[in-house]
Amino acid sequence: MRRLGGLPVLLMLVACERPVDTGVQALPPSVADQGAATVEEQELDWLQMMPADELAALERGEGPEVEHNGSRRMPQFGTFRTVDAVLQRPVRLPGYVVPLASTAEGRLSEFLFVPYYGACIHVPPPPPNQIVHVVLERAIEMPDMYAPFFLAGNLHAERLDDELAGSAYSMRDARLKPYAP
C-alpha cells in the first residue's frame, strides 16, 4: 500500500450560526434486537454518533474559531468518545470518502468517511467521533471524492490517529453505495 501523503483534503465544519434543532432521535431497536432472522440497515444521522454533552457544546458554539490566515491546517477539536447505541448494528451513513491508501494499481483500500465535503484546509476537520476509519477487505475503484455515498456496515469504537485527522469509529465490513435520498 502507498500512503496518499499531502492530499489536500478540504473538510469544513459549518458553525456560523447556532445549529437548528435537528430532531435527531435515538436509534429505534434494530431488527436484530427483536430476534428477527434478517437484519435491516438503519440510516444513521452523524449527530447520533456524538455523546449528548458534546453535541450540546457544539450547539452552543463552543468549537474553535475558524481562522482563514496562515498556511497551517487548524487542529482537530472534539473527543474520541463514542455512543454505545450506534455500535455493533447494521447502519448506513451518508457522507464523503477521503482516501488514505491505495494499491499499486490505484484502487482504494483505506479511507476516512466524513459527513461533508469541505472548502478550506484552514478549517478543522470534523471531531473524531464524526469520522469513520474504513479498511476494505478488497480494494475498489477510486470513487469520486466530490460525490456523496452511503457507507453501510457495523460501526465499532476504534481510535485512529492519522496526520489528516483522528477517528473514533471504524467499519471493517464496509460497503459503499451510491447516495440516493
Rank of each mutant, 00 (worst) to 15 (best):
T22A: 09
G23T: 04
G23Q: 12
Q25I: 14
Q25H: 14
A26H: 04
A26C: 05
P28N: 01
P28A: 11
P28V: 15
P28W: 06
P28I: 12
S30F: 13
V31P: 08
V31Q: 15
V31M: 15
A32W: 00
D33T: 02
Q34M: 14
Q34D: 07
A36M: 13
A36S: 14
E41H: 08
Q42C: 06
Q42P: 01
E43R: 10
E43M: 05
D45F: 02
D45V: 00
W46S: 06
W46H: 13
Q48F: 06
Q48R: 06
Q48V: 06
Q48H: 03
M49K: 02
M49F: 01
M50Y: 13
P51H: 12
A52G: 05
A52E: 10
A52Q: 15
D53I: 01
L55P: 03
A56M: 06
A57G: 07
E62D: 14
P64D: 05
P64N: 07
E65I: 08
V66S: 00
H68P: 03
H68L: 14
N69P: 00
R72N: 10
R72P: 04
R73M: 13
M74Y: 02
M74E: 08
M74S: 11
M74Q: 13
M74C: 00
P75I: 02
F77N: 00
F77W: 08
F77S: 01
G78R: 00
G78V: 02
F80I: 14
T82F: 04
V83T: 11
V83C: 08
D84F: 11
D84A: 15
A85S: 15
V86L: 02
V86Q: 01
V86S: 01
L87F: 12
Q88M: 12
Q88K: 11
Q88T: 07
P90D: 10
R92M: 14
R92G: 15
L93R: 04
P94L: 03
P94H: 12
V97K: 05
V97H: 02
V98H: 03
L100F: 15
A101G: 03
S102N: 06
S102E: 12
S102T: 09
S102W: 06
T103H: 05
T103W: 06
A104R: 15
E105I: 03
G106C: 02
G106R: 05
R107L: 07
R107M: 12
R107D: 07
L108D: 02
S109D: 03
S109R: 13
E110P: 15
E110R: 15
F111V: 05
L112E: 02
L112N: 05
V114M: 13
P115G: 13
Y116C: 10
Y116Q: 04
Y117S: 09
G118K: 09
A119V: 11
A119Y: 10
